[in-house]
């Protein structure tokens, strides 16, 4: 770990320089909604006390539609062609801990036994410049899932606001090399090491361990009937989420004898997600699907990959059409768990 300093003005200049240098630079759009190459060039989003974007930065690593290969059928002779991947080096700036942490979490599922190079190549090709967060609302719960506003998980370089500048902490070799390569934009940091300042709240909103333990034993419980009752079965929650990663594989025809096989975002709340060709559907109700969503995030993924499939960003709750609040449900589970053990 190394500490450097970068003035706000220099950060803008660095981004401009990178763009000219054929980097793909990704920041937050002027409306604060999502991460894009068409980001706000004034870097107004580099304030740590504003809400996170409505849509996570996942869409730049795990694409909403990814071409897997192209096929062509020449009178029965099949020709398969690899897709052309944007090989430009990518720099992502302004991501909060609740975004950056998703990359190592997702890496687990995309790499057990079979390595998904579409995801891996994008991550390897990127420098993630994360930023300390000073925002906190009733939907946030990064602390409760083992992260914090200071979490460097998933960042290559971590920025900590310091007056009109940022303290730049190098987290990975990749980050170190990046700072060395663009050293002219940085200066030595001579101040005290930044304090691991406390998060907005000391008291935990829920205790993850007791929630997990309750989930281990309560696959059948009336809680689930109520939790999913007004769910509309849309994919909003999954699609804004930094860690949801379910996908579909489809062929899209272009003309009669050529086309593309694509990997598209899918969501466990969609009623057709698990439906068999026979018509049988293991998760045929909203209640079952909602149970799957919570259980996958807070139990199954942890059982399998020792990670919680949630960064506590609160996006799904802020955007839910029927205001289902995942934090409220987790707090409720925590309460049920305590009332039954006491």
């Amino acid at each position: 770990m190394k500490l450097m300093k970068i003035e706000k003005g220099n950060l803008s200049k660095l981004m401009e320089h990178l763009k000219k240098d054929n980097f793909r630079v990704i920041g937050v759009t002027p409306d604060g909604k999502r991460f894009s190459e068409k980001f706000d060039e004034t870097l107004n989003f580099m304030q740590s006390d504003t809400p996170p974007t409505s849509i996570s930065f996942k869409e730049h690593f795990f694409l909403k539609t990814e071409a897997l290969f192209y096929y062509k059928n020449n009178n029965g002779a099949i020709d398969l062609k690899e897709p052309v991947i944007d090989e430009r080096k990518t720099v992502v700036i302004g991501a909060r801990p609740c975004d950056t942490a998703s990359l190592p979490i997702l890496s687990k599922v995309f790499n057990w036994d079979y390595a998904d190079d579409f995801f891996n190549r994008r991550v390897e090709n990127s420098i993630i410049i994360g930023m300390k967060c000073n925002y906190q609302d009733d939907y946030c719960f990064c602390n409760e899932v083992g992260l914090s506003q200071n979490s460097e998980k998933g960042s290559d370089i971590f920025l900590i606001p310091d007056g009109d500048a940022f303290i730049a902490k190098t987290i990975t070799d990749k980050g170190n090399k990046f700072i060395e390569e663009f050293a002219i934009f940085f200066e030595e940091y001579t101040g005290n090491p930044p304090a691991e300042n406390k998060n907005g709240h000391d008291e935990k909103k829920f205790d993850y361990e007791s929630v997990k333990k309750w989930l281990d034993n309560n696959f059948e419980h009336k809680f689930w009937d109520e939790a999913g009752e007004t769910c509309l079965s849309c994919g909003q929650c999954a699609f804004v989420c930094p860690t949801c990663h379910c996908f579909d594989i489809v062929d899209e025809q272009c003309g009669t004898c050529a086309g593309v096989r694509a990997k598209n975002w899918d969501a466990c709340q969609f009623s057709l997600f698990t439906k068999h060709a026979s018509g049988h559907n293991p998760r045929d109700s909203r209640e079952k699907r909602y149970r799957q969503r919570i259980s996958h995030k807070f139990k199954y993924y942890n059982d399998k990959f020792s990670e919680i499939l949630c960064t506590g960003c609160g996006r799904c709750s802020r955007g839910c059409p029927v205001s289902t609040d995942i934090l409220e449900l987790l707090e409720e589970i925590d309460q049920i768990a305590h009332s039954t053990t006491n």
Binding site: Y114, D116, C246, F247, F273, Q292, H296, Y300, K304
Partner: peptide, 12 residues
């Protein structure tokens, strides 16, 4: 078929 797409999960 690779343990990624999340469709065939039964529990963990």
């Amino acid at each position: 078929g690779l343990g990624k797409c999340g469709r065939c999960n039964i529990g963990n």
